[in-house]
Amino acid sequence: MVDLSVDLGNGLRMKNPVMLASGTCGYGEELADFIDLSSLGGISVKGTTLHARQGNASPRMVETPSGMLNAVGLQNKGVDYFVENIYPRIASLDTSLVVNVSGSSVDDYVAVCDRLRPLDRIAAVEINISCPNVKQGGMSFGTDPSMAAAVVVAARQIWSRHLMVKLTPNVTDITLIARAVEEAGADSVSLTNTFLGMAIDVERQRPYLSTITGGLSGAAIRPIAVRMVWQVSQAVRIPVVGLGGITCGRDAVEFLLAGASAVQIGTANFIDPTTSVKAIAYIEDYMERHNMADMSAITGAMKTP
């Protein structure tokens, strides 16, 4: 019997290492017609901000080779709506609930965490300092080690449960940011968010996205994300949650071998909403085949020459 459970520390214990990535699964409910949400390790719900956001203008999406660009821009109804209307609907789900938190100032992040404090079924916040599609805040916090640390220090004061930080890959050295947030008190890091990209409709000579640039996700980014997870897992002591272009169980295993303690499935949900449950079954079978008894045997198990 393989033990798939994973403990990311400070109260975030999951029955298996597979989570749904924020922004690709709504509040979980959107996928409930396709999968048993309680079979998942965890769900990171849609990026939540202090005030409601309408997001960016359309078009917000364009398909690219082995991936897609999006420019949603953190459309959400704000934390108060989440607390009053959404949380009561999802609180009884038998999976670890993580709220992705975003803001345009340090005070915003703190205020959102404060509103989430009374919700005892929220096991963790995932501090999003990596959204490429908002004008203020978002990724700008995640590209500077001291600003990244400032957000984490402030959130840490008010949020005592598990605090995960979602990192942007749009930096020269992602390990510097990872170390900075570790030192500031983060319990784990998740990476990567989307890569800043753009695509042009050459006949119309116009960008496909209303925002010109957007976030690239999908299989196209996987090798870069795997490399970054490998680098960060060697640079920090806190657990690393790997994501970026996972399309199946094999891809998830790749991140685990690179050093991730858990993984998140994102864009693949759009192609096959059952990707996450298939990945869990694959990982279990893989670990059995390779005589790995628990998650500590697979995390970082890549062999080098």
């Binding site: 922004g23 690709t24 699964c25 709504g26 959107e30 996928l31 017609d33 396709f34 849609k46 997001g55 359309s58 917000r60 999406m61 897609m68 999006n70 949603v72 459309q75 864009t267 949900n269 759009f270 909403p273």
Partner: peptide, 10 residues
Amino acid sequence: ACGIGACLCC
């Protein structure tokens, strides 16, 4: 992208 109300692209 998704067709099921998850990605908020459309």
